[in-house]
Design a protein around this nucleic acid. Structure first.
Lengths: 158, 158
DNA sequence: ATTGAAAGAGACGATGT
DNA sequence: ACATCGTCTCTTTCAAT
């Protein structure tokens, strides 16, 4: 696992990142125009941002409702042990559950916060029973369902 | 606001969505090869997915640490009124706070769950004081900080 | 209705000035 | 920063299944 430390970004870099968060398939020609640089200078900066790991990847953003996964559920998981080995074991296990789209280790103990996307409540129950409670060391699992997504994957304020 | 209802997807569509979530800048030539179609058939399907709103956009995925926003904070906000007008007012106000990258209305009351990205704890305090508690109708605000992100913006299980 | 092949236009990447 | 040039990619058209 490579840790990426903070990188110095100037105003032009930030403009590029904002443009590419809004349209990740923008051509370099358009990007250069958007940040008022020549195409070669724009491409050089873009490659530098990619190489430095500032841009980790490009992705198509999928409409969750359109693909039949309209329900987001936030799940809090407590482990019985907070030893690093127990945390790693949990994280390895949870990475194999496709419905888990986000997973954070929270401060103050051994609590994880997960976001799942599911088809319906039966699907939630299935994932809960088959994938979450069966992981060794999982002590408590509590879920709350999102009714409405107000901001979905907003861009970072760069 | 346009609501996108679920769309029928076949196995090839799903393969395309998986490929494009992993690499949103993949060329149509490569995409066609990945799903075993001709370029023209691949491109036609891709445009259909875009037009139907299954793919909402393409985005560069930014490394939060690399741009100096290493801290994710989950904030629960309770409103004093659960009237639809109060909810809408809150959602309009929260949309103007750049640090808020996700916002969900949770079932069972008038609680919102937000994810903020901030530079450090001073930055969190500033956003908390200047942007969150000043929104009319906000009654309770409680924060918890993520120590570690295990799965960052995982792909949807399509 | 969906696919495949082909051809022109445009973008990309590399190089040199 | 600009110009150039070969290559790759996108897009449309048309025929086939």
């Amino acid at each position: 696992m490579k840790t990426v430390s903070a990188v110095a970004l100037d105003a032009t870099d930030r403009k590029m990142l904002r443009a590419l968060q809004a349209d990740g398939r923008m051509s370099n020609t358009d990007l250069a125009r958007a940040v008022a640089l020549s195409e070669s200078a724009s491409l050089r900066r873009l490659r530098a941002l990619e190489t430095a790991g500032v841009i980790s990847r490009y992705a198509a953003i999928i409409n969750e409702r359109a693909v039949g996964l309209p329900i987001s559920v936030f799940v809090t998981v407590t482990l019985s042990s907070q030893a690093e080995s127990a945390l790693t074991a949990f994280e390895t296990a949870i990475a194999t559950v496709p419905e888990v789209v986000e997973c954070y280790l929270m401060t103050g103990g051994s609590d994880y916060l997960l976001r799942l996307v599911v088809r319906d409540v039966d699907d939630l129950e299935r994932v809960h029973a088959k994938a979450l409670t069966t992981i060794p060391g999982v002590t408590r699992v509590s879920s709350s369902v999102a009714m409405r997504t107000v901001v979905k994957r907003g861009a970072l304020p760069v």
